[in-house]
Design a protein around this nucleic acid. Structure first.
Lengths: 223, 223, 223, 223
DNA sequence: AATGAATGAGGCTTCATTCAT
DNA sequence: CATGAATGAAGCCTCATTCAT
């Protein structure tokens, strides 16, 4: 019962937010309607009245929040002055989204782990928009001649995967960081630092003269 | 009830494997003792006799399979002739582990998404070993003068994150790939291809003259 | 939402008809206010405004439709020129009532099966009028010397019982009649045919010289 | 919690009996698992363990008790020395079944009123056996030359319908019989009396020289 | 070592009913 | 008059766990 805004936000909206948080923390199976209702400050039956059953609620949450994220990423990519800063902005935006909406990465991970059991056509469309952002940022760089030709899909994974993992390990890292055995690992790091480090890795590779890739292939085949 | 080996494997082992698979697909909350027992070909009560309750079973699964993975990765890193191939071998090993044991990435994602609610001291130690592998591979390259100084943690995430996401999206990608809108995205890719692509990106960045990083920082500050 | 007359019939009337139909098909416990409201084309709350709660609605339905039936039967019996045709008209009227208002027999059966849980004083009076119809038709025949002295109650049951069962089995008989095992049973029969067959049985018995009854008693005692 | 036999009867049996009684009194929708469990003296979950969900329980009840009734009726018809006593025995058996198992007529009426919504293939077979009993008794009489040719189905209804109605009105008749307005109706009557009265009506008609039927037809067509 | 039976707790959902507008 | 919103109570069902054998 987050009393802060309980008054001014319509129940349907409060329900969606509460559901997002509960499903993020507990997954679809683990999240209970009871927990969602109490967190949203409404009666359990109100969820059925406004949204429908558990499955409908979950799907609505997925579509809604993935859609909003896609909106933000698209804006970030489109607003950049050049290709390199477009890619940087994309990564920074992913980072910021995950930082400001910690439920997002969690619910994504739960959902992927479940074989995307609740990924309806509508949700998949929103996910597709996310992938299109990476594609657009990449294509622009290639067109401007500053990025090497690179397959989209691994690049997308290389952006989202690390940020996902970084985001969801936040609490565990904080818990573990005080442990002497973890002292040298520098587990604590801000989203900005992580975002910059990742940008460094990826932009470095995208703009390099493809030497790295060649050398890697050699290393792979040599043994 | 995988009849294949039901006869020759001791019940306790069968239970752990079944639990791994069920928890991977459904998460901790969604996986039921009934499903695990039936998949293991044993009575429900047998699980309590051999392993203990649901929480104990889950924790045992985590420790067991993370431990085995750590064993394999350590061997891969230690067996490499030089730093570059060590890093390549690490990435390839992660890829192979996820390919051959599809439950592994799923259960990891579920667990991280849940705030590591079941990450006991013992499990954390196994996870620490995983991180040490990246650290060791990186340090060696730096010592040999072929890798730039790089923070371990982002590098680790940049290896594991993409491979995790790649692994768990396998089925959904297969489902979606026939869709016309996904035609140009080349979503279908073998673990080997993905592994090589990722190796290219990361080794390229690790061995580059650090120019990328610098340029990135500029891009970030320019706007 | 039977659009046909939705406009011209007052809400209270539409509600009663809808309730009749829903209660007939689902029984008191199974019929929902939601279903009734939607079928009547009104808001759920309107039912409370116009009629009252579920129990009041049900009772109103019972009284209303049983009362109307009693009106019709009384008219049929009173309008007959002689005793035999009075009895025939009674049976034919019961048959016609059940044919034209299929909810009537169903709701009666539900109600009787429930121990007449909702049979208030008012409803019982209407039911009493039904029984009086049989009584009147019988008495007239006895007075005219064409009917044997016969107990009213068994006769009433022998009229209403078969017609009830005939009416409510309509759909199931249609479903089953195509089955080869039911081929010789001639389950499909019009209300008119059934009514005539029943009239034949009952009038035959009422007008017979009471020999049948005596012989029956012998058969019973013979073992 | 009928303490009488709670000890010696297996739970599955107790559950079926309790379900029969509860469904008879309340119908399918109105009967609750809670009520059934408590009446059977078992935990609610035990019902799911032994029988399955509500629908399965209901169907099992229908099949079981209709089947038993068919057994009894078949035996009665087959054991009679001649056609007339066969028909008498059939009617008497129906009467005795309804008397000794008051849930039977109630559940039948509920089920018919519901459009036979739960009449699966298996249950329909048992119901078919009931109809076959009437058919057999009738055919025998026709073969022996003592019964007129008569359609089976109306005869069956004329036997079962009145007895059904008689049985389920027992309590209401008792309640109403003290009312002065009902004094002359002789509503209270034993099952034996009712059975004999009905036998008189039906045997009288079956053995009559078909005069009744002819006269009836005249009466119908005259107006 | 293994299992069929049993159960208390809790989860999802429906429903009759009320109320402010 | 009419209705959208809201809710407490109750219903069906599942599940982790225990226990006697």
């Amino acid at each position: 019962m987050k009393n802060e805004r309980e008054k001014n936000t319509p129940p349907a909206e409060r329900i969606l937010v509460a559901a997002m948080e509960v499903f993020a923390a507990q997954g679809f199976a683990g999240g209970t309607m009871e927990a969602i209702a109490s967190r949203a400050g409404v009666n359990k039956a109100a969820i059925y009245y406004h949204v429908g059953g558990k499955a409908a609620l979950y799907e609505t949450v997925l579509r809604r929040f993935f859609g909003r994220t896609a909106d933000v990423l698209e804006a970030a990519v489109d607003g950049a002055p050049d290709a390199a800063s477009g890619m940087s902005a994309l990564i920074a935006s992913v980072s910021a989204q995950f930082r400001d909406n910690p439920s997002l990465p969690r619910i994504m991970m739960h959902e992927w782990a479940r074989y995307g059991a609740s990924l309806s056509e509508g949700v998949l469309l929103e996910l597709g928009r996310l992938l299109r952002c990476t594609q657009k940022a990449l294509k622009r760089g290639v067109a401007e001649g500053v990025f090497r030709e690179t397959p989209v899909w691994p690049l997308h994974l290389a952006i989202v995967g690390p940020m996902l993992l970084f985001s969801v390990t936040r609490e565990v890292r904080a818990r573990v960081s005080s442990h002497p055995a973890a002292a040298d690992l520098r587990l604590i790091m801000s989203f900005d630092e992580m975002s910059r480090a990742l940008t460094g890795i990826l932009l470095g590779s995208l703009t390099a003269p493809a030497a790295g890739a060649r050398r890697t292939a050699q290393a792979e085949n040599t043994p």
